[in-house]
Design a protein around this nucleic acid. Structure first.
Lengths: 237, 237
DNA sequence: CTCAGATTGATACGAACGTATGAATTAATC
DNA sequence: GATTAATTCATACGTTCGTATCAATCTGAG
């Protein structure tokens, strides 16, 4: 079985013709490239990662990126697609669990946390381009779009049932998502060398601490969503 | 013959000991560079911005960056310091206002929002390096450290008073901060070209929408912090 | 075995990068 | 006006980048 070129989701098909066939053994090179690129893009950023570093890390020839993906950019998108796929699946799974709307949303937060814990590089890969001012890459936008639609619907239903407070479902979705994303980011960002004293209280690598962080975020989100009267302004009760 | 300067840390005077009080008109170049660099770093990222682009944007000579800052990196840190300074001041101000702890923290969220609205480039500049896997630059870490300490103290006091629910003050601080940061990021990230249908509901540029976003986040944070009994829905520890 | 196509390999190329250098110019002091 | 330091300017250097090129090698079908 031989031969293919630039399969993946998007199909620019720059170079040779595709002799539609099964995946060749050489697909190994593709996988090696994606693995190496994922690691480097996450730790050094897109612009900070050279094709030479990627191919060297993968133990393949310099020309492999051009051959298998057509360009550095296309490889980057392939990495993002690979990264977003399990996230999207996990989110979809979380939205089908549980009984009440609030439970479903709590499951979403948990799913996000666990996904980001198993793939610590994920928030970096996703936020990188966004933080650099560019629009989110296609694979990211796609999964985020699907997620937002599904979550907003659950939120709207919860509002009808009276379990979730009034408010724009999309804004509530953003507030929800902010918890796992921001905290996973902080988890790595605040691993300061020399240990800044103001965060030395937390040992981010301790599994128990991580679990308590998840529970904290779930509780925070749950309270933030709940339809509960809260006294505004003023002082103490 | 050239002279050396490079203040290294941003605190001392711009350059050599100039005759007291007389700022050489050439300090303009420094400001022009910082302004141009800030804009470009925010919209293109550090690696994506060349010294040539910065100097061209500032209308000054190519060598100006090396002369006034010593290196591209030093200019970047100067930009960050410039950016973080008003943020830190605004935060400090917010923490001194209001009566109750909850109000103080609500003021903090509001202050963050308004700061980020007036400086839309700020989250990009701050998150860029973090998202690229590097530790947060010095000026960022400094302000964040001060903020975390102050906020955690207010939270701890609120907990003693019974106004704020139990929980790690630092985690609560992160949940609090996540609201303005994440939403300001989303505000720009989701300005999708072609308008993704799932977010077309929001017109991010509408001032009223922005204000409602702030109020939403404040309410979400307030509810999330509040010491309020919440009925546990399904399986919660 | 043969051979065409798929893949890998070594190398080249032009562009862009950060920085260095030293002359030209400006501003301040005497 | 002369002197000197501060700053600007034009240009050069060495490196690294993404990509292109094309020969070498591998693989499976006939």
């Amino acid at each position: 079985m031989c031969a293919q070129r630039i399969p993946e989701t998007e199909s620019p098909g720059p170079m040779t013709m595709v002799a539609a066939g099964t995946t060749p053994a050489a697909t190994d090179t593709r996988e090696l490239l994606i693995t190496s690129a994922r690691r480097l893009f996450a730790t050094r950023g897109y612009d900070g990662t050279s094709i030479r570093a990627i191919t060297a890390g993968a133990g393949v020839n310099l020309g492999a990126v051009t051959y298998h993906f057509g360009s550095k950019r296309a490889l980057y998108e392939a990495v993002l697609a690979r990264v977003m796929e399990p996230l999207g699946q996990r989110i979809a799974g979380a939205m089908e669990t549980g009984s009440s709307s609030l439970d479903r949303l709590a499951a979403l937060v948990r799913a996000f946390f666990h996904q980001l814990r198993e793939n610590p590089d994920q928030p970096f890969l996703i936020l990188q381009e966004i933080a650099a001012g560019k629009p989110p890459p296609k694979p990211v936008a796609r999964v985020m779009g699907r997620t937002a639609a599904a979550v907003a619907e659950v939120i709207a239903r919860g509002q009808e049932e009276g379990a979730i407070r009034a408010g724009d479902p999309f804004l509530l979705f953003l507030s929800l998502l902010s918890q796992p994303v921001y905290m996973s980011l902080a988890r790595h960002a605040f691993r300061a060398p020399g240990g800044a004293d103001w965060m030395s209280v937390l040992d981010w690598d301790d599994a128990a601490v991580q679990e308590s962080m998840v529970e904290h975020a779930v509780l925070f989100a749950r309270q933030g969503l709940a339809a509960i009267p809260i006294q505004e302004g003023g002082g103490e009760p």
